[in-house]
């Protein structure tokens, strides 16, 4: 499989990179670890005219800085770096779990980045295929067409799903992202950054770069956990996943955020299912009730767009949610 032709640029500074991107706009793509971008390019799903490599920007954009009341995680931080940062390993074990769950150690752990994971494309069993596979098939919504193959005749939109493990956990942690261009900077919560549209999953301008992830300082009482269901113990994208972040104060749940992966074009934040938990004790019954509600809320999103039956995936929602909530609650109370 050869890559299509493109130009290759490797700016030496963030400022230079942003200037180049302003010039090329949507014709150019950022290249960080390349583990998402280049597979799609090989399959002919994208054909940028230029790739702008971020490889020289690591000094500027990799690593964690602790600020007064938040943390800034550079977009170029590799997954391995992220999960090895003492603060993340100690206080955000859910994020460490999510990073560790991505791919495999020698696959992308050491070169793939947090920024790339957040900006990776949504996926679908009928989309992430070769040109030979698609020959003779009408282009789907995500390719600019007007059908969704797994969605069937009545489908009116793309039903690809966000399968970025890191994104799901960061959504649960209530993270924001900094988007920078040559002319300015925006900060968006992940709820705003992820559009929920498979055709264009992220709200990011053609001249913008995701430079940082902003996280609240964890502090005592916060527990986080990431539970991933995949076919194999490594390499595979999630069939379903749940990221949970829970704060427990005085034995009662002060906040609970839960995001599902691999069901919707964005990490699916289940607000209403978690609401009843507020002010309650994290008992197994309470958590199980919230998990059951999560299952009902997620049900409409399940279609046959993965390699496992939608019916099974639907049944698994309460299971992964309960497991994620239990582990987060236990960690919030000092457990592991």
């Amino acid at each position: 499989m050869s890559l299509p032709h493109f130009q290759y640029l490797a700016p030496l500074s963030l400022a230079e990179a942003l200037e180049q991107k302003a010039l090329w706009g949507g014709q150019a793509a950022w290249l960080s670890g390349g583990s998402d971008l280049l597979t799609r390019a090989k399959q002919g799903l994208v054909s940028p005219e230029a790739l702008i490599s971020l490889k020289h920007l690591s000094p500027e954009l990799a690593g964690l800085s602790e600020e007064a009341n938040h943390l800034r995680l550079g977009a170029q931080t590799t997954l391995h770096q992220a999960l090895s940062l003492p603060l993340i390993a100690r206080e955000l074990p859910g994020l460490a779990e999510a990073c560790a769950a991505i791919g495999a150690p020698t696959l992308q752990q050491r070169v793939a980045t947090v920024g790339g994971n957040l900006c990776a494309q949504t996926r679908c069993l009928h989309y992430n295929q070769s040109a030979l596979w698609r020959a003779g098939l009408a282009p789907c919504f995500k390719l600019g067409g007007e059908v969704c193959h797994p969605g069937g005749a009545g489908a009116d939109r793309c039903r690809s799903t966000c399968q970025s493990d890191g994104a799901v956990m960061l959504m649960a942690l209530g993270a924001s992202v900094v988007l920078q261009s040559a002319t300015g900077q925006r900060t968006l919560t992940l709820s705003d950054f992820f559009t929920g549209q498979g055709e264009r999953p992220q709200d990011i301008g053609p001249d913008e770069m995701l430079t940082h992830v902003i996280l609240e300082r964890p502090g005592p009482g916060l527990g986080s956990a990431y539970v991933k269901m995949a076919s194999r113990g490594a390499v595979d994208f999630p069939l379903l996943s749940a990221g949970a972040a829970m704060r427990i104060e005085g034995g009662l749940i002060a906040s609970a955020r839960l995001a599902l992966g691999a069901v919707f074009a964005a990490p699916l934040l289940l607000k209403t299912a978690m609401e009843p938990l507020l002010g309650q004790a994290p008992t197994p019954e309470n958590l199980a009730q919230a998990a059951a509600q999560a299952g009902r809320d997620a049900a409409p999103f399940m279609i046959e767009n993965h390699s496992t039956p939608a019916a099974w995936r639907a049944q698994m929602v309460p299971v992964v949610v309960a497991r994620a909530l239990e582990r987060a609650a236990s960690r919030a109370q000092g457990g592991i």
């Binding site: 495999a104 069993l125 194999r232 390499v235 390699s307």
Partner: peptide, 19 residues
């Protein structure tokens, strides 16, 4: 239509060392 949905190493699940 007779398209194989998982002709790739990603989607056809050959066991890995961890399995």
């Amino acid at each position: 239509e007779g398209r194989c949905l998982n002709p790739s190493f990603l989607d056809y699940k050959v066991p890995l060392a961890c399995d």
